[in-house]
Design a protein around this nucleic acid. Structure first.
Lengths: 205, 205
DNA sequence: ATTGCAAGAATGTCAGACAATCGGTGTTGA
DNA sequence: TCAACACCGATTGTCTGACATTCTTGCAAT
């Protein structure tokens, strides 16, 4: 399942393309029952679609659907940032700071994969410290579904740098324990991230 | 899968109890591979837990975890009520009204199952008309995970009646297109529902 | 009473098979 | 020539049966 998930994240499969069970079996070196279990899990996570008698396929993510995901993500992430700010502790500030400098380093490079990874790390620290594991869990599921966009929008000219500035603002607010500012900064960041995703999508069509 | 889901919803399995694959197979009249696919789906929905080499079991829902779910649910449901209010159309008002009177009828009976069902119907209309399918989908997943409580809290003395009053308030706000009032009413309703769930849980231990 | 071990139970995984269904292809008829 | 239809390959849905691995439980020995 992890191999499949990774393959989907890295964009190995074309959106809309069908996944042939027998092919995947030989590629992964596992049997069909095992594969189908994994596919059912991924289906429940909405990473793939399974239509009866047609089998699994990578769902084509329309911008409309992506917008819906971004909206819910905003709801959750803003809440998490706010909660995190109001319950932050020194060691977590350090952790966030460390993660932020990791992203800073990545942002100055051209390795968009490293950028996405380190940025995701930054968010996950916030989500992990918001005090609500369900919030974290649902958020992770949503982000996974739009992972398709993340690499591409991060590749946009200057996106990594402005992302860094926005994330620093979030960090400052949280470190200061300012819940309201954290919410605001988080909201702003998401708005820009969404706009960047839209740009990257329009540019690619 | 649907049969299993229904069985879980109706509380057929004791929380914490293990589900033996071979038993379920004979009970459901299906083979192990098919059953395991279904179990993987339910695991991804967090309706069951599968620990390696120990197999599937019904997760014991602590109040702490339930609180986390209720908090996220509030976030989503309040948002949905607000959105629904600001984009409501006459035919949906009718639909809501019809659903509300169905609940009214159930509330005056002693059939707590019918109460839960009709109430769920009312919410799902709101969620379906909030304009964001992802919001609806995530919400449904969360509600499923606390279905355990819903029947019991609805059985509390007078809970159905006060629930009816709160739902009517939500309905009025939405029908009036008053987004702010809808959010407020929805929040209030959830707060009370949560308190009732807590009561029913404490009373049962 | 505690520890170690062995038998049983349950899971994880596989191979192989077969029916049901879908999609495309070739044929037939208007 | 084009459309409707029948056919066939490909693929999925499902089953049976099997076997290794791991966990649990009961028993025996210290």
């Amino acid at each position: 399942m992890d191999k499949l998930r990774l393959a989907i994240f890295s964009g190995l499969f074309q959106p809309g393309s069908r996944l042939i069970e027998s092919q995947l079996c030989t590629q992964l070196g596992i049997s069909r029952p095992s594969l189908r279990e994994a596919l059912r899990s991924l289906e429940a996570e909405r990473l793939i679609e399974i239509v009866p008698n047609r089998g699994p396929s990578i769902p084509a993510l329309t911008w409309e659907k992506a917008t819906a995901i971004y909206e819910v993500r905003e709801l959750l992430e803003v809440e998490a940032a706010g909660r995190c700010a109001s319950r932050i502790r020194p060691e977590q500030v350090l952790e966030l700071e460390k993660s932020l400098s990791a992203f800073e380093e990545a942002a100055s490079s051209n390795d968009s994969l490293a950028q996405v990874m380190t940025a995701a790390d930054f968010y996950s620290i916030i989500l992990a410290n918001c005090g609500n594991p369900v919030l974290e869990e649902v958020h992770r599921g949503l982000v996974a579904r739009i992972s398709f966009f993340r690499g591409r929008s991060m590749s946009l000219e200057g996106r990594a740098q402005s992302s860094l500035a926005e994330m620093r603002e979030i960090f400052e607010s949280i470190a200061a324990g300012d819940e309201k500012a954290a919410r605001k900064a988080s909201k702003k960041h998401l708005l820009k991230a969404k706009a960047a995703a839209k740009l990257s999508m329009d540019g690619a069509v």
